[in-house]
Design a protein around this nucleic acid. Structure first.
Length: 330
DNA sequence: GCTGCATGATGAG
DNA sequence: TCATCCTGCAGCA
């Protein structure tokens, strides 16, 4: 599922592909027909993310009236975007749940025969496409979103007002990085709701999902079942700072990798150049870290903790699976 | 072919 | 706390 890093990545991709373009907006599946009709033919200005919320801005004028509009998309558990293009833009991939299909070049005919092969024709939408954005050189299809609606700027502001700070946004979306961190720390400590639950609350911190929750609390050695007000402020501040690094890395690479090099490589001991790496996510090559070594606890229930060897625990918490190490996290 | 799950959020009870 | 919505895919038969 798309956690915040994926949504930020999507915003960048949409901006790259469509900003400054007039786009045809349609709803092949039909469920967004009315909204699509409002936006069809408008100029797309930019796309941005706040936590898991994606906002795509369209300029006032022409088909729209005197007011600009924002398309708000939330992918939920299953939503996904699929991109294709004529190859003039370097971005042809899909991002989203349940599986990334990065690198899939479904529609684009090989650009091998050059510009003489005539105008690019996008492939027919595949599956239940709620929304299609089409410009001269690229197409984006959206399937399975939890939310897809057209908002006024005021309505967009109202949505944002309900969201907590977002570690990926500059300054966390607050006045400063310190203000964002403080807001997060004090909010968590104001409540006796477990810190594990609060990390999934988008009003507390925006963009964190089940993976980042599990991994960040493990790295901070904090027991997810601890009431928020009992977690030391400096542990929470450290968690925020850690998430800033982890999630920005995720947004850059498209992959979540939280393990430190010294905790990977179950078999072969790392040596040589691999040893001194301190970054988590890739060092430029996401494939460098095998998928089964990317996490400390997420989806590793029953397997030995990478640090202490105790079996990773799994429990249902507020309807979601919670993974943690009962020995390392206290 | 069918079933159950998934990195979410919401609304009713 | 539960049911519900959105969709695709892995894992079965």
């Amino acid at each position: 599922m798309p956690e915040g890093h994926t949504v930020h990545r999507l915003a960048r991709t949409l901006t790259e592909l469509f900003s400054g373009e007039r786009v045809r907006v349609s709803s092949p599946q039909g469920r967004f027909a009315a909204g699509a009709a409002v936006l069809d033919g408008a100029m797309l200005v930019t796309a941005e993310a706040w936590g898991k919320q994606l906002f795509v801005g369209f300029t006032a004028g022409d088909p729209l009236g005197s007011e600009s509009r924002w398309l708000r998309v939330h992918l939920g558990l299953y939503g996904a975007w699929t991109f294709a293009g004529d190859g003039s833009a370097d971005v042809v991939h899909a991002i989203g749940a349940p599986r990334r299909r990065i690198g899939e070049r479904d529609s684009s005919p090989p650009a091998s025969d050059g510009p003489s092969s005539g105008p690019w024709v996008p492939a027919a939408p595949r599956g239940a496409v709620r929304l299609r954005l089409l410009a001269a050189h690229a197409v984006a299809d959206l399937t399975g979103p939890t939310a897809c609606e057209v908002l006024t700027p005021q309505e967009k502001a109202a949505v944002e007002a309900r969201l907590g700070p977002d570690p990926i946004r500059p300054d966390g979306g607050r006045r400063s990085q310190d203000a964002a961190r403080d807001a997060f720390v004090s909010r968590v400590r104001r409540s006796r709701v477990t810190v594990g639950q609060q990390l999934m609350d988008q009003a507390v911190i925006a963009g964190v999902g089940n993976i980042y929750r599990a991994e960040a609390l493990f790295r901070a050695r904090v027991d997810p079942l601890r009431p928020g007000r009992e977690v030391p402020a400096d542990a929470l501040a450290g968690t925020w700072d850690d998430l800033v690094v982890l999630m920005r890395d995720g947004a850059t690479t498209g992959r979540i990798v939280t393990t430190r090099p010294e905790h990977r490589g179950g078999g072969a001991p790392t040596h040589g150049e691999g040893r001194r790496r301190t970054r988590q996510n890739t060092d430029g090559d996401p494939a460098a870290v095998p998928a089964d070594e990317a996490f400390y606890v997420y989806h590793r229930d029953g397997s030995p903790c990478r640090v202490c060897g105790a079996p990773v625990l799994l429990e249902g918490l507020a309807g979601r699976n919670l993974f943690w190490c009962g020995t390392c996290q206290v």
